[in-house]
Design a protein around this nucleic acid. Structure first.
Lengths: 204, 204
DNA sequence: CCTACTTTTGACCAATCGGTTAAACTAAAT
DNA sequence: ATTTAGTTTAACCGATTGGTCAAAAGTAGG
């Protein structure tokens, strides 16, 4: 079957492209490096994806959609707010720690091509309004303080994403550049962040 | 006087380099573009700063040090914690809103050259341990909850920096890509973030 | 084995980019 | 006026980069 082979190399290319693009960004990445990482000829990249731009877009889309399901799963579950948060934070930090360059990569590239980002959001299944609604419902139930639900969501995302995006800086500033200390700290943060947020919003 | 001229062009170059580097990153920036922005010949860039690397380093250092004084001023004041936070958050958000590409730029580039970052921190006058100590003292005074002071500091930074670094995304997700709505939201956040933090850590 | 098709490769190209050089310009000093 | 020093420019260079192409290698049905 020809499709098996095709899918195989196409996927090999996408994985290699992810590794290189995410580390070096669109501008810093070299097509040759991606080809090497995939163990194939450079011309083959252009055979499957016509240009660097198109390969980048495919890569970015794939990477971007990795992060969506966890967000939406939090909304759709019907657990109490404490456990929703618990599940979301733990899962999110896990994903990011396995792909520590991912946040910075996304942050950098969304500045370069906002129109492409707009398309991506539409086709990603991400529904921010549902998340906002979920928080609103909790406020009406009286379980959490009344506030702008967007503020709450953005704050939670901030607390999860930023400490991983700024890893090299934090690592130097607070952990003597010791990777283990840093990792343990982030691990502990799964609890810390949850407490920090709940302490702030929960009505006891 | 020759020095006046020299200082003038050197500064013109640095300003132009900041504009271009911060928007496009080290790899995306072109020497020609920086020269155009500064209104000079490309060779002049190499006359003042030998290479792109050196010009970039000078730029990054200048940019990085912009953010330090505000942090340290918070530590050294002897106001109550509420007002320290108030001052810091308001000032910090103001600085970032005037340079919205700055956070992403720094986050991206600290990943590329961590050794240079290490040097920079040493020579920047930034003393993270003093900030940590300040929070510790507050905890011993009993004004705020006992917790890892690093967690607290990092959380505050997260809440301030991330919403600006992710501007294009938030703008699309929550504000229909309307810049005014977004700006007003961030402006309101000066209060929101302070309340969010104080609510979480203050012992009433 | 042959044929028709897709996949993969090595060699190559034009454009771009960082960097160099030698000459022109400026102005203070003698 | 000439020298001397630093400053600025235009033209140029080699290397790298994204991209192309024609041919080779692989694949499957007849």
């Amino acid at each position: 079957m020809t499709n098996i082979k095709k899918d195989n190399t196409e996927e090999k290319i996408l994985i290699a492209a992810q590794n290189v693009f995410v580390r070096k960004g669109m501008d810093g990445a070299r097509m040759q490096e991606i080809a090497d990482e995939a163990g194939i000829n450079k011309a083959l990249l252009h055979y499957y994806f016509r240009s660097k731009q198109q390969l980048f877009h495919a890569t970015f889309e794939s990477v971007f959609c990795k992060i969506i399901p966890n967000v939406m799963r939090m909304v759709e579950s019907d657990q109490p707010i404490e456990e929703k948060l618990d599940f979301f934070i733990e899962n999110y930090i896990d994903v990011l720690m396995k792909n520590p360059f991912l946040p910075t990569f996304v942050l950098k590239e969304i500045n370069q091509d906002p129109e492409f980002l707009a398309e991506l959001i539409k086709s990603s299944g991400l529904q921010p309004k549902k998340v906002v609604e979920m928080f609103k419902t909790e406020m009406e139930k009286g379980t959490i303080r009344t506030m702008d639900p967007r503020d709450l969501l953005i704050s939670i995302l901030s607390l999860n994403i930023f400490p991983i995006a700024s890893k090299p800086l934090l690592s130097l500033l607070f952990f003597d550049d010791d990777q283990k200390s840093y990792t343990e700290f982030i691990e502990r943060r799964k609890v810390t962040v949850k407490e920090f947020v709940l302490n702030s919003i929960l009505i006891k």
